[in-house]
Design a protein around this nucleic acid. Structure first.
Lengths: 278, 278
DNA sequence: CGCTGCATTGAAATATCTCAATCAATGTGG
DNA sequence: CCACATTGATTGAGATATTTCAATGCAGCG
């Protein structure tokens, strides 16, 4: 079964065995791709949903000067182009980062599977929402952290996601991004990315082996430097953890009502989501 | 009818009249909110979907040091917390920016409406995908542009979205963000945001009136400075425009096959999405 | 009048970019 | 095998961008 990693990754709570089998049967073909091959471009009209069986890829946007920014990375167990099913167009490109195998599901067959197992639609919608949460993490990373921390934070994200699908060997960063691609993902020049890597190396957080792969020496240090919060949305199940503080409507504090909260709460004093220490 | 702006905004192609009416009837209550009021926090368990009838709000994430980053802004005609329905938790906070009226739809009633009009689910999924596209724009903005351009680009995005729902008067930036909030959205210090605004002022692109509102003097200049591409996903319908270049499977260029494209295409040479001039 | 919140400014300290050059590894053709 | 080209990592140095800290100005408000 091609989709078996759905049982492990971020989406593991979303699919029953029946739904998984239905999705699996909707697979049209599996596609082996060479490293650094373009998979999706905005000029392509979406007709298929793709799933990463093996390998990794990057979603990116180029501007008119040829400058590229990565907006997401995908690894085995992730869907590639969920947006294409609902939106019927792409606003980004996708390229493989290594030898990669995709499973392809034609949209029509996906629609059939959904009509048999309506919960599949909810699960894929949920997966889309998770993509959104990942995007918000990227926005936060770019807006909040300095160069070295951005690199460290991205590495932490990649490692934590890889752990979920058993693709982290305890040492090597499991996605073969070049330094220049880290730069494109973290919003800096490749020269500066190189200096950030040197700083992380000198701190003993990681080391760059010859063949372009990056080995993690001190994961805790990386998380500290990158202000990475283990506990964020990816790493947890999404359906079971009920959150306690279940407040009634009055917490909205409409006009002319103090509600249950004392006085006026400005946005500035709001809840702190990310419990990170440095 | 509370949801009438859905007929105009980014989601205008997604809802038939019947679906709109069904959604409208699912509204539980409308909630007037004071400026700078917290609407959503991660500790809240999602039970309702909210829609902005009037006003504006910001989605944001705070870190453990109290530093805040905005990750999205919403205005009349937008949904507030689509992710909550599928994910059943929030990873962000939401606060109003001005006097704002929300329409509230309990998730159970939304589910009933969906069972009567299954297309509503697809439309909301599509709206979620559009949120994702907006997030990618923010990632691109933060990663690619310098301070002044980031501010200009964000203002352009806000104005273009407001035009769609007739909330742009041709002059005033229709969302009352403080300079410090522009800074939080654009990943810079408020001091630097202030200097960027001064630069934009000195260029004659905008002017800051006394009461905190920002007036646009030269929209074309703003777009140029912000490298803003009118043509991006927001501003267009999503279902009608078929894209011509409809390539067959072989364009995937699997191993041992040249496909229809000559030679090996590296990611570096890929399609340019954003046709922006400076 | 004295608050307060926000905009503004200056100046020094950092962070980051750009340009240019070098180096190491790898592959290719003769 | 060598000469050569290519790719990615690395480094230096000067130019910019941005942050930080501290102070000031300005307007509304009780």
């Amino acid at each position: 079964v091609w989709l078996k990693l759905l049982r492990k990754g971020r989406l593991r709570h979303l699919f029953t065995n029946g739904e998984l089998r239905a999705l699996d049967e909707a697979i049209d073909q599996t596609i082996p791709l060479a490293p650094r091959t373009i998979v999706i471009e905005p000029v392509i009209r979406p007709r298929f949903l793709h799933y990463i069986v093996q390998g990794s890829l990057a979603r990116y946007i180029d501007d008119c000067f040829g400058d590229r920014r990565l907006v997401a990375v995908g690894m085995a167990g992730d869907f590639v182009d969920l947006e294409g099913f609902a939106l019927e167009r792409y606003d980004y490109c996708v390229g493989t980062l290594e030898h990669t195998i995709l499973a392809r599901i034609p949209h029509e067959r996906l629609a059939q599977s959904i009509s048999l197992f309506p919960q599949i639609k909810m699960a894929l919608w949920c997966a889309t929402s998770l993509d959104g949460a990942a995007h918000r993490e990227w926005i936060f990373r770019l807006g909040r952290l300095r160069g070295e921390a951005r690199i460290a934070n991205l590495i932490c994200e990649i490692v934590e996601r890889a752990k979920l699908v058993d693709l982290y060997d305890g040492k090597t960063v499991p996605i073969p991004l070049l330094q220049s691609e880290f730069a494109q993902a973290c919003g800096m020049s490749s020269v500066h990315a190189n200096r950030c890597f040197r700083a992380l190396r000198e701190r003993g957080a990681l080391c760059c082996t010859g063949s372009g792969q990056i080995d993690i020496i001190d994961e805790a240090a990386l998380k500290r430097i990158g202000q990475f919060d283990d506990d964020f949305l990816y790493a947890e199940g999404v359906s079971t953890n009920e959150i306690s503080n279940d407040r009634p409507v009055s917490s909205y504090r409409p006009f002319e009502s103090t509600g249950e909260l004392a006085g006026r709460i400005t946005m500035r004093q709001s809840h702190r989501l990310r419990g990170v220490e440095i």
